[in-house]
Design a protein around this nucleic acid. Structure first.
Length: 572
RNA sequence: CGGGGAGUGGCGCAGUCCGGUUAGCGCGCAGCGUUCGGGACGCUGAGGUCGGAGGUUCGAAUCCUCUCUCCCCGACCA
């Protein structure tokens, strides 16, 4: 490709609203352009990166027996009503009506369609197992799109679906995907970890996320340094201390003016946070007030709380709602409250004589004990793990890392095939629901995540596997002999199968160097009067410090060798 | 949805508080000339309904009302 003809230009300055490195650099490099919040066009350079990612994904999906197909992006609402997700999912789903006033929606996922296809295409156990996948546009009206391509509303996703006769088959299909995903992200040059995750709106039993490390990641991961445990903080557990045994001392009211936070309370009484009980109030979408009680040194994990209460939606309760159950904001305790669901973390059960609120302003209670002073509706693990907490498997202190979710895999089971009647007949002629798994990879997010991990102050540094081009070829200066030599190199490289972005513009050397660094193709070749004097070209690897000079005649071979070496370095 | 901020040429910004020539600046863009290995220089030029609607006023980018959009933090999230 000749840069003089390339559609899309580089920018010297990034838009003021860009924050993430990948966002700034991909906009500056002329790879992406925003159309609206979380809605982007991919310009030719960005599209080439996305296509490279897609190619890797296709190769690895095909390698585990996946069959590519394509499912619609606009769905009739019926099948989503049958699985209940039409009712369950809120504003994140973009809904519309067709001319006949029928409910339609923009696909945010395709489990329903797959289950529908199962109903029509799968009749017999002889047809199982199957893996089908597609690479398709999805739309999720995220409450807050941000970060360039990392978190968008319209996006391209590869999702695959495994169809099996039983859970053993699902285990095998899941395992295949686990390995395929590992190969895909390795080939993309990502540093990542697989963590246990929440099943969220997908339903199903088991879920793992492929998390690329990034200081700008939105997820927090807890990782045991010995390698035996890694989980998203949403679901991470940790080794609890042994319950403290102690004599239950008598309840005692203590005056505590202006101590509405746990920290203030601990400071005021001169006790550690761990000797207090924290009260957190939520209102659920089903209308219940959930009263979570946890030890003061811990934080409530809302994902866990949602799980144990079977609530899908929790929002922080208002002061009026808190008073309505007999509690007092800032001085809340489970002693004497009513009309709410009391969920107690194990830490509170296992620690006697805590200081909790007195449910009236300015007072707390000493020596509050579960069972004696109040009853719990549920005792469960609702605590957030954090860095420095002991690993649930081996007790080693865990580290906390930030990550970007680039892929996830789910064991769905029969969650979708039962309501949509996706059944097959076994050898005895008996009908069973097909057992499903689903597996997603965000293409654009994947590309942007590579950019997050591979850049420097000058610009992007794409791994060769996903770079828009292998080589940036620069002709420096106005010497006709230079142009001629560059043209010849461009031609030879291209014919040798090397992807070349040829900077044939009339700009000065500095401009071309800067744009080449910004765009970030892995190999830079420069031809100038100076190099030509020795019948040479300059070759510099984007991620290296030094350049080398090589005879013009050896450029093609050298470049091809280098590309092969770079690809070998990304081998799974 | 809650809190905060911003909409002025393709990008980055000033001007708005305190209304008043023709709305500026840098980058970019076009033409000409000089320059040519790390974002050159000179001259000339194009490009703006100041997000939109309504209002106040002799006069509105500037004041008032409504509205749309975008960003940040939080809530939320296969």
């Amino acid at each position: 490709m000749r840069m003089a003809k390339l559609f899309g230009r580089t920018l010297r300055e990034a838009p003021a609203d860009a924050e993430l490195p990948s966002h700034k650099l991909m906009v500056r490099a002329g790879m992406i352009r925003p159309l609206g919040a979380g809605i982007y066009s991919l310009l030719p350079l960005g599209w080439r990166v996305a296509r490279k990612v897609e190619r890797i994904v296709r190769e690895e999906m095909d390698a585990i027996g996946g069959q590519e197909l394509l499912m619609p992006v606009v769905h009739p609402a019926d099948i989503w009503k049958q699985t209940g997700r039409y009712q369950k999912i809120g504003a994140e789903m973009a809904r519309l009506k067709d001319r006949g006033d029928r409910d339609m929606l923009l696909a945010m996922s395709h489990e329903e369609v797959v289950a529908d296809l199962v109903r029509t295409e799968i009749n017999s156990y002889r047809q199982l197992p199957q893996i089908v996948y597609h690479i398709q546009t999805k739309f999720r009206d995220e409450p807050r799109a941000r970060g360039g391509l990392i978190r968008v509303r319209e996006f391209t996703m590869k999702d695959s679906y495994s169809l099996d006769a039983d859970s053993a088959g699902l285990d095998a299909s899941y395992d295949k995907h686990w390995h395929a995903y590992t190969r895909i992200f390795t080939r993309m040059g990502l540093k990542f970890v697989v963590v246990g995750a929440d099943v969220g709106m997908m339903g199903g039993s088991l879920s793992e996320e492929f998390m690329a490390f990034s200081p700008h990641g939105e997820d927090i991961l807890l990782i045991c340094p010995t390698g035996d445990y890694a989980a998203n903080r949403d679901v991470a557990t940790y080794q609890r201390e042994a319950p403290l045994v102690g004599e239950q001392r008598p309840l005692e009211e203590v005056e505590t003016p202006n101590t509405t936070t746990i920290q203030a309370l601990a400071d005021f009484l001169g006790i550690p946070l761990g000797e207090t009980a924290k009260a957190v109030f939520y209102k659920s979408s089903s209308g219940r007030i959930i009263f979570a009680v946890i030890r003061g040194d811990l934080d409530v994990n809302e994902t866990k709380l949602r799980q144990v209460t079977s609530e899908t939606d929790l929002v922080t309760a208002t002061a009026e709602q808190i008073r309505a159950i007999g509690a007092e904001p800032g001085y809340g305790s489970p002693v004497g409250v009513h009309d709410c669901l009391i969920v107690v973390d194990e830490s509170v059960r296992d620690t006697p004589n805590l200081v909790a609120g007195a449910n009236k302003p300015g007072y707390h209670l000493r020596n509050v004990n579960l069972g004696r002073d109040y009853q719990a509706d549920l005792v469960a693990d609702i605590a957030s793990a954090a860095g420095g907490f002991p690993c649930p498997v081996c007790g080693t202190l865990m580290g906390a890392e930030r990550g970007i979710e680039v892929g996830n895999i789910f064991k769905l089971g029969t969650h979708y095939t039962v309501p949509l009647d996706g059944t097959y007949l076994d050898a005895e002629g008996k009908a069973h629901p097909v057992v499903m798994g689903c597996y997603g990879i965000g293409i654009g997010r994947g590309a942007a995540t590579v950019a997050e991990q591979h850049h420097d102050e000058r610009g992007l540094r794409w791994p060769v596997s996903v770079a828009p081009f292998h080589v940036s070829l620069l002709s420096l200066g106005v010497d006709a002999a230079v142009t001629e030599a560059a043209e010849r190199l461009y031609d030879e490289l291209t014919r040798a199968g090397v992807e070349v972005l040829y900077d044939d513009r009339t700009d000065r050397a500095g401009v071309k160097f800067n744009d080449a660094d910004l765009i970030g193709n892995p190999i830079r070749l420069s031809v100038s009067t100076r190099t030509l004097a020795n019948d040479q070209a300059e070759l510099k690897v984007r991620s290296a410090d030094a350049a080398e000079f090589i005879p013009i005649g050896e450029v093609v071979v050298r470049v091809k060798t280098l590309i092969d070496e770079m690809l070998a370095g990304l081998k799974p």
